[in-house]
């Protein structure tokens, strides 16, 4: 089940090859049945030459695969950095307790505003000011999402994989997630709200906005959509980069004493989306490796 992205797309052979290396079943060309004339959040997904894919285990199979072999620390919130000695100290909290990590190079792979927040404290860092000014011009957009499950006897099977409504002020898309599976037990829909609507309800209880979103979908799809067997909601505060924001490559900030902070992510490569995030991360990794090897 995909709670955020409902499918991946790309044109770069390297990126598509990286997807192919993820174990499990990829559904090529999904979504293949598209309804509605509303604008997709990533219009490039539907241009000639773009390849669309969904994964049976969910799109997060890709980042999990990329993280294989890495020492991943979960449930920890990074709050800032300090320069001490020869290294960078990463300040964080875990379970309310302060923790820290020490490294020579630190890479931020976050949404632009999240990176900006972490770079906001150490004012004296050389070269940081243009980067902060730049990131301040690169907003991200939120997205409220709902996964809704329906018992087959209480639902209709939508005749599409994804629907982009053209008239709804609330709904950006509805994905028919159970269409990714053979003989699904439930009809599963994923509803994603438009950025402006999502921003307006950022501080609203989900018990209020979820019925509104389901109701909007029900008016367009069928009354059964308003009565799911169960649902799960999530607010993505930084769902994606604003489509008018795009940079040509990742940033690598040289601090004093050969310490470096790299910044990569969707914003830092042309085209946006997961492909841009992957490309910028790879580009930054190659730069770090090249410089480390002299």
């Amino acid at each position: 089940m995909d709670h955020g992205l409902v499918f991946l797309h790309g044109q770069s052979p390297d990126f598509l090859q990286a997807l192919r290396e993820v174990p499990g079943c990829w559904l090529d060309h999904w979504p293949s049945v598209v309804r509605g004339t509303g604008t997709p959040c990533q219009p490039d997904a539907f241009v000639h030459g773009a390849w669309r894919m969904a994964h049976a285990n969910g799109i997060n199979a890709f980042p999990k695969h990329l993280a294989n072999g890495l020492d991943v620390v979960l449930e920890t919130t990074v709050t800032g950095f300090e320069l001490g000695g020869q290294d960078i100290t990463v300040l964080a909290t875990r379970g309310g307790e302060p923790v820290s990590f020490v490294a020579r190079d630190v890479v931020l792979a976050l949404a632009g505003p999240q990176s900006l927040a972490l770079l906001d404290s150490p004012n004296s860092w050389r070269g940081i000011e243009p980067v902060r000014a730049l990131l301040a011009m690169m907003p991200s957009v939120p997205s409220a999402t709902v996964i809704a499950l329906y018992q087959p006897e209480n639902a209709e099977v939508p005749p599409w994989d994804i629907w982009y409504p053209e008239t709804s002020a609330a709904l950006l898309l509805v994905a028919h997630d159970s269409a990714k599976r053979d003989n699904p037990k439930n009809v599963a829909l994923v509803l994603q709200a438009r950025p402006a609507w999502s921003r307006a309800i950022l501080s609203t209880d989900e018990g209020v906005w979820v019925p509104e979103l389901l109701g909007d979908a029900a008016r367009n799809i069928g009354s059964w959509v308003a009565r799911p067997r169960t649902w799960q909601a999530h607010m993505w505060h930084h769902a994606r980069t604003s489509p008018d924001c795009e940079l040509a490559g990742p940033l690598l900030l040289d601090l004093e004493r050969s310490r470096r902070i790299g910044i990569a992510g969707e914003l830092f490569a042309p085209g946006g989306g997961v492909q841009a995030a992957w490309q910028s991360g790879k580009q930054l990794a190659l730069r770090l490796l090249e410089e480390a090897q002299g």
Binding site: P130, A133, L134, L247, A248, G249, L251
Partner: peptide, 15 residues
């Protein structure tokens, strides 16, 4: 804001 052309372009990710 006081940043010269090349600095700005580098910050924007351009060569």
């Amino acid at each position: 804001g006081g940043l010269d052309t090349v600095e700005a372009n580098l910050a924007l990710g351009f060569r």
